[in-house]
């Protein structure tokens, strides 16, 4: 089993933290942003996991779920729901926010883009009133959401408003050894600027996602 990661790629935070958290046995290869290790994809997809069967996983969330499962922790239904929300709602907003802050130098506008998802997460955590997203123990959902939010929540220059529950949950997960070690490996203490070369290679985010390509039924 081999994990392919690149420095400065925020999605690699997820898989490296999951790897440390679970202690799964897996080699790690550092490659550059342009390298394409998944044979059937036209665009590079990093991180990627080469499975013992020879097939590839190219979704960071599926890789994290797999690492937790081989460690004996199946993904409970509520976890799945947070992972789906992360991929469909949080990621598009986060990518837009990171692109604005790092590539376009518009850090002051980031808050606008992130208010809705941060409020949603804050409500979920407040309602649950538990130390972690789905209970008293860390799950794959905590690691994935922590990693997704790390770049923006660890930067004190971004004014994101008060989300008390998000903040205390984030600090709790962030204090874990696995998370600290992953951030060092991916961002090397360079913060948002550590992701600049990765973000510059990504196609600019579409601010208004086209709805006309889907039949409205």
């Amino acid at each position: 089993m081999k994990l392919f990661v690149s420095e400065g790629n925020p999605h690699c935070l997820k898989v490296l933290a999951a790897l440390e958290e679970t202690g799964a046995k897996c080699g790690v290869d550092y490659i550059n942003h342009e390298e394409n290790v998944v044979p059937f994809l036209s665009r590079p997809a990093i991180p990627a996991l080469l499975l013992p069967s020879g097939s590839h996983l190219f979704s960071s969330n599926a890789i994290c779920q797999f690492l937790f499962e081989v460690n004996g922790q199946e993904t409970p239904p509520l976890c799945n729901q947070w992972l789906e929300w992360e991929a469909t709602e949080l990621q598009p907003a986060l990518f837009q926010a990171l692109y604005m802050a790092v590539v376009q130098g518009k850090g002051s506008e980031v808050s606008k883009v992130l208010q809705a998802p941060l409020n949603y997460l804050d409500q979920g955590l407040t309602k649950g009133n538990l130390p972690y997203l789905t209970g008293n123990a860390v799950t794959v959902a905590d690691v994935v959401l922590w990693a997704a939010l790390y770049p923006i929540l660890s930067d004190s220059s971004l004014q994101l408003g008060e989300h008390k529950s998000v903040r205390s949950w984030f600090d709790r997960v962030n204090a874990r050894q696995s998370c600290q070690s992953a951030t060092q490996k991916v961002l090397q203490g360079k913060g948002l600027q550590g992701m600049k070369s990765y973000l510059q290679r990504q196609p600019a985010p579409q601010v208004n996602q086209p709805r006309d390509s889907q039949p409205s039924n």
Binding site: S55, L57, S59, A62, F66, V70, L83, Q91, P210
Partner: peptide, 29 residues
């Protein structure tokens, strides 16, 4: 198996991220 469950989850995610919001240029890819 753990592997096939991960592969299934990956394509389910692909479905709701890539196939729910595509534009014309994405279709060929």
């Amino acid at each position: 198996s753990a592997e096939s469950r991960a592969v299934v989850q990956q394509w389910l995610e692909y479905r709701v991220t890539k196939l729910n919001n595509y534009n014309k240029d994405d279709i060929r890819t």
